[in-house]
Nucleic acid binder design. Sequence first.
DNA 1: CTTGCGCCCTCCCCTTAGGGAAAGGTCAAG
DNA 2: CTTGACCTTTCCCTAAGGGGAGGGCGCAAG
Lengths: 129, 129
Amino acid sequence: MNISQAARQAGLTPKALRYYESIGLLVPVRGENGYRDYAAADVATLQFIQRARACGFAIEEVRELLSLYRNPSRRSHDAKALVAEKLAQVERQLQSLRVMRETLAELADSCPGDDSPNCRILDQLAGGK
Amino acid sequence: MNISQAARQAGLTPKALRYYESIGLLVPVRGENGYRDYAAADVATLQFIQRARACGFAIEEVRELLSLYRNPSRRSHDAKALVAEKLAQVERQLQSLRVMRETLAELADSCPGDDSPNCRILDQLAGGK
DNA sequence: CTTGCGCCCTCCCCTTAGGGAAAGGTCAAG
DNA sequence: CTTGACCTTTCCCTAAGGGGAGGGCGCAAG
């Protein structure tokens, strides 16, 4: 299968697939003409990658997940640990974004938003209490 | 004031201050010895930058905010628009992270996390329903 | 006076996960 | 045979600095 079709099937872009090959994450075979030829198993792997990425895993973490997936003597504990760690990280990002949202909402509320130059947003950013 | 002290007062790093200078965001004067010399007003500007960054504004957005702050004929509407747009963006990121958290939580729950290789996390990432 | 330590300078490479574009080869259809 | 769509490689670009090398400056102690 050509790169564009494989990418479509996995919900990715051809550029991403070339990138994954360049970092050794998924290296397809090549046809006579030099074109990458993605096997069905490759597409399945690409879907795995896409799902893991959608869960917030970085590429190197996806590599670990794939390594576990391919290792028949893995322990499910190890996969769960990766997920738990990612979950904790996502929680931290959520908390950080909630703080930002709160601050931004307060800023927006404090400003009339009219044609006058009086702006409590800028005053507060400048340190005015 | 030297770069390290200015950075400390603003809750930033010397490296960040050098970067801000390199992109023309805040250019301090130089002393005889070539050292950057941050005036009190510069430190206030750095604090403005730090607060805006903490709210999630990108550097180019901070530049706009600073430009409004320095423009006496600004309209508070413009500042409020920037804040509202950033707020909407933060909401989108929150929503995206909530989806990730949900998915990760389901994955974690479905996996025993023991020494066996049976792992529903990896199965689900592989497309197993 | 000089040594040492801490601070400062510039310059360069590194990070994530690809996107965009250029220059050229290939394939299938008309 | 040509055209257009697809493929290839290679290079540069992103945000916001971090890390480190190599070298200069300032101030206190010996």
